[in-house]
């Protein structure tokens, strides 16, 4: 496959080395893929895409776009010559230009700029809004304008920084699908940054997990979910219970002590006895959460455990358990 972006041993720190933002990151992105960069805030996601866009200069390593080295410690190609499209978290529409002028902005060198701009606006479904200004548009519309603006010059790589964080939950899913349908339609390679794993799982071909500036895992969505390489990765995709010594004893599961194990909350079965590892528990506290509820349990050996369930649980005592093939193991 054709690698459109290659990152080699990339590092970047701020404040004179005091804050390591990106630490020896290595990966590549194939042509046409949609790649999500996931991590908690402060994990270096934004720095990574700013490095790719050429808005920051790396301390170490290389960035290669379409086989051409654009960033290294010896030289850095300025952002305006990288042929990258970028949609910023706050959309960054030019407030003094209308929608059409915004979209035409990156087409200065083209003869058919008006035609092209209208074409892209039609693609995002905002053709009739071309005379409006940013402050006259809703958040979702602004975002589509920003996308149109980034796509107009036909970039070899599209970057989206937290594209859905400014939208409310209702619109989010709908818009996410719209946006990625458009991106898929254009066939452009895209990298998007998010702290929300749902977004990543829903649309990404590949997901990169960053932790403290380090790339901890890069895989397809399902692989990441089922075979996380660390408890951090596992817990990004839903509640995960780490099986410490006390819990291992409570469930009487014979796991190696020197290995780190965890079990996903949804794999803990409640009120069943046909699991491989079972124990009894007392409910100390219930918290109603709508479709499901959270239970704080005291296990028979005195360990506390908090689980989420969508089953109605009656009484104060119950049996809980899980199976060995749901156990996640990491070497740490």
């Amino acid at each position: 496959m054709n690698k459109i972006l290659e990152i080699k041993n990339l590092s970047k720190s701020f404040d004179g080395g005091k804050a390591q933002a990106i630490d020896q990151v290595d990966f590549y992105v194939n042509q046409g893929d949609i790649c999500a960069v996931v991590g908690e805030s402060g994990s270096g996601k934004t720095t990574l895409i700013r490095l790719i866009a050429g808005l920051e200069n790396p301390d170490q390593g290389k960035i290669i776009i379409k086989g051409k080295e654009v960033s290294s410690i010896k030289k850095v190609l300025v952002p305006e010559k990288r042929n990258i499209g970028m949609v910023f978290q706050e959309y960054a529409l030019f407030p003094h230009l209308n929608v059409l002028e915004n979209v035409m902005y990156g087409l200065a060198k083209r003869k058919d700029k008006k035609q092209r701009a209208e074409e892209v606006l039609a693609l995002v479904g905002l053709k009739e809004y071309k005379e409006r200004y940013a402050h006259e548009l809703s958040g979702g519309q602004q975002q589509r304008v920003a996308l149109a603006r980034a796509l107009a010059p036909e970039p070899s790589l599209l970057i989206l920084d937290e594209p859905f964080s400014n939208l409310d939950a209702m619109m989010r899913t709908q818009l996410r699908n719209e946006i990625f349908n458009i991106i898929k339609k254009t066939g452009v390679t895209a990298i998007f940054v998010t702290h929300d794993t749902q977004d990543a799982l829903a649309v990404a071909d590949e997901i990169l997990i960053l932790q403290n500036g380090k790339l901890v895992q890069k895989d397809e969505a399902s692989k990441l979910y089922h075979k996380p390489q660390s408890i951090y990765v596992a817990s990004l995709f839903g509640n995960t219970v780490q099986l410490n010594k006390g819990l291992k004893n409570a469930f009487r599961c014979p796991l190696k002590e020197d290995c780190c194990h965890a079990i996903r909350n949804e794999n803990i079965s409640i009120n069943v006895s046909d699991c491989e590892f079972v124990t009894t528990a007392k409910i100390i506290k219930r918290t109603f959460l709508g479709t499901h509820s959270q239970l704080l349990l005291k296990l028979d050996n005195g360990e506390n455990l908090s689980v989420v369930t969508n089953e109605a649980v009656l009484g104060d005592e119950l049996k809980i358990g899980f199976n060995s093939n749901d156990i996640l193991a990491f070497d740490e």
């Binding site: 866009a53 305006e80 990288r82 970028m86 910023f88 902005y105 200065a108």
Partner: peptide, 22 residues
């Protein structure tokens, strides 16, 4: 916001043009 001039640069304008236009 910094992202506004950054957008302009990514869209292919140099520093001076970004300053003048944005």
């Amino acid at each position: 916001n910094n992202s506004i001039p950054d957008s302009s640069k990514i869209l292919g304008m140099g520093n001076f043009k970004t300053f003048y236009k944005i």
